[in-house]
């Protein structure tokens, strides 16, 4: 074990491991770019219909089932199907080899938590509050913008937080189809039977996953407009539709 740790240290000290297409810097940039783009797309595509359906109170079964399906379908299988199938694995701009296939898979797996949490968040807005707002003469749009959305915000952001973590993890698996991202350092290490390299790649992936999760948790706290007062009761609220990649 000590040998491995020494090897990992040596790996990070070798400038050759940082530069070039296969280097840490390029892989990290690819990974961050993929995660950022896919999160943005998942939010843009998933949030409006989920919020609207939640506002209307329709499509609940769909919103929940999307999560269940998203959990049962292996990310790896979808990546392979996309990469050797319709999307192909040609290089896609700064996203690298199989960039488009990876991006499609990331958005697909980012959507379920975004959709399910936004829908549940909208539906769980206290019905009495909604009635009171209607009684005060608010129309549908006002109700949505001034009552439902702010109150649903903690769960909506929790869904995005889950999505980011899942997208980051899925982007790692892209390496199994020779795709872009930090997972490639891990798979390269496996191919060379270089355990320190495997560890170095895995460490970077894991540390960034934890950092991103913490950053999103902070953002979630900041974006809760109802504020710290309710924290005591809402802190234990788990987001729905978590699935592991």
């Amino acid at each position: 074990m000590l040998d491995v740790l020494r090897g990992v240290l040596a790996w990070f000290q070798d400038p050759a491991n940082w530069s070039g297409e296969e280097g840490l810097v390029n892989r990290l940039v690819e990974h961050l770019l993929l995660t950022g783009t896919a999160t943005l797309l998942a939010v843009l595509l998933g949030l409006p219909p989920a919020v609207w359906l939640g506002h209307l109170g329709k499509g609940g079964l769909l919103a929940v089932n999307i999560s269940n399906i998203g959990r049962a379908v292996p990310t790896f299988a979808v990546l392979v199907v996309l990469a050797i199938g319709p999307v192909g694995s040609a290089a896609f701009g700064p996203y690298g080899r199989a960039g488009l296939a990876t991006l499609v898979a990331l958005v697909l797996f980012g959507l379920p938590p975004v959709i399910t949490n936004a829908y549940v968040g909208m539906r769980e807005v206290d019905r009495d509050t909604v009635e009171a707002a209607r009684g005060m003469g608010m129309d549908g749009g006002q109700l949505l913008r001034r009552v439902e959305l702010p109150l649903a915000m903690p769960l909506i952001v929790a869904g995005v937080r889950l999505a980011v973590v899942q997208i980051w993890a899925t982007a790692t698996i892209a390496a199994l189809v020779a795709g872009p991202g930090l997972g490639r350092i891990i798979t390269l290490g496996f191919r060379r039977q270089d355990v320190p390299e495997v560890w170095a790649g895995a460490l970077v992936v894991a540390v960034f996953a934890l950092l991103i999760e913490r950053a999103m948790a902070l953002a979630q706290r900041r974006l809760d407009p109802v504020g710290q007062a309710r924290r005591a009761t809402s802190a234990g609220r788990l987001p729905v539709g978590a699935s592991k990649r």
Partner: peptide, 18 residues
């Protein structure tokens, strides 16, 4: 929860030396 945040490929890789 922290372990859950670590992507599967990375976790399997971290267990490799053991």
């Amino acid at each position: 929860t922290a372990i859950y945040t670590v992507p599967s490929l990375a976790l399997f890789a971290l267990l490799l030396p053991f």
